[in-house]
């Protein structure tokens, strides 16, 4: 099949800014995007630059934006892209500085991964056994699921929060964090939970599920984030605004079946709410501040049942 590609190019040695170049190439039916750009590099444009290595979705090198979604080029099929989008647009991953064409500077991503102390920290008071540490196989599900992560940065660079808040540690790092939190051999669970709960940590996640959707390996980072959040809550690690916010949500719905947006900031931020005064004033002037006293929803019995049921299912 003859396929058209539009690819973002940028060579810092000659170009002032990125531009798009069109290519057209004959490809076999089941070609992947990676095979296609390799063919373009070999047959049309030797300067086209991208990373690739394993061709089998395991090394994480070839992440790029394909039709505006972060994907592994070696896993994305040309035919699928054409069927869905009519053509193929390839751009570098978002948020990271472009080094050349589709090659981005991954350093900021690696720094985020390093933040979660991604190595085993056994309990220092326990001597290492002579043999392996024993692990109950029924506890390894989360560890294995998170271990599937190949650090391709698809989730990180398509994360909606990281877009607004570049300091957010991001879904890949948090999944790595859960890999160690869930590991029964690790002795630093509380320390990890505390640090993962700090500002720019897990509570900054907006629960949009973009990470889970783009992950090419089925890691489900959002689920990892939920599980560390849950554990932190259970272990009483509740000092971050994020978790207070979640608690305030819960309390409000439990009390009235409604979200009380007027009292939420107070409960989340405590005295820190004073800092929000200018915004609150502006909102008030525009009639956007809701009345703090709310009538409960008519059928509170239903709400109570929902809470009971969730409690039971945990």
């Amino acid at each position: 099949m003859l396929v058209s590609f539009k690819i973002q190019k940028f060579n810092p040695e000659v170009d002032a800014k990125p531009y798009y170049r069109d290519y057209e190439i004959e490809l076999p039916e089941r070609a992947t995007v990676l095979e296609s750009i390799i063919a373009i590099k070999e047959e049309i444009d030797g300067t086209l630059s991208f990373r690739c290595s394993c061709r089998s979705a395991i090394c994480g090198s070839c992440a790029m934006r394909i039709n505006r979604c972060a994907k592994l080029a070696c896993k994305a099929r040309v035919a699928d892209e054409v069927n869905r989008h009519g053509s193929i647009l390839i751009e570098p991953l978002q948020k990271l500085k472009v080094i050349k064409d589709l090659v981005v500077d991954m350093d900021p991503f690696w720094r985020m991964i390093e933040k979660v102390k991604p190595y085993l920290m056994p309990d220092p008071n326990e001597a290492a056994p002579e043999r392996e540490r024993l692990v109950d196989p029924s506890t390894t599900e989360d560890v294995i699921r998170n271990s599937l992560c190949i650090l391709c940065a698809c989730c990180h660079t398509d994360c909606n929060v990281a877009e607004l808040e570049p300091g957010f540690v991001g879904p890949a790092a948090l999944a790595k964090g859960q890999r160690y939190v869930a590991d029964t051999r690790d002795g630093a669970t509380d320390e990890r939970l505390k640090s993962l709960s700090e500002p720019h940590g897990l509570w900054e996640c907006a629960r949009c599920f973009a990470c889970t959707q783009v992950c090419p390996k089925g890691v489900d980072p959002r689920e990892s984030i939920r599980r560390i959040g849950h554990l932190a809550y259970e272990r009483g690690i509740r000092s971050d605004e994020g978790i207070k916010h979640a608690q305030a949500f819960l309390d409000s719905v439990k009390a009235s079946g409604r979200l009380n947006e007027a009292t939420l900031p107070l409960k989340t931020k405590g005295l820190g709410v004073v800092g929000m005064t200018p915004m609150a004033l502006q909102m008030f002037l525009k009639g956007k501040v809701p009345f703090p006293i709310q009538r409960p929803v008519p059928d509170m019995e239903e709400i109570r049942k929902i809470f009971e049921l969730t409690e039971k299912q945990r």
Binding site: Y119, V135, D136, P137
Partner: peptide, 14 residues
């Protein structure tokens, strides 16, 4: 294993 490598486990934990 002590470094933290993940291995599949038998039912006795080994």
């Amino acid at each position: 294993e002590h470094m933290g490598t993940v291995f599949s486990r038998a039912s006795d934990g080994r």
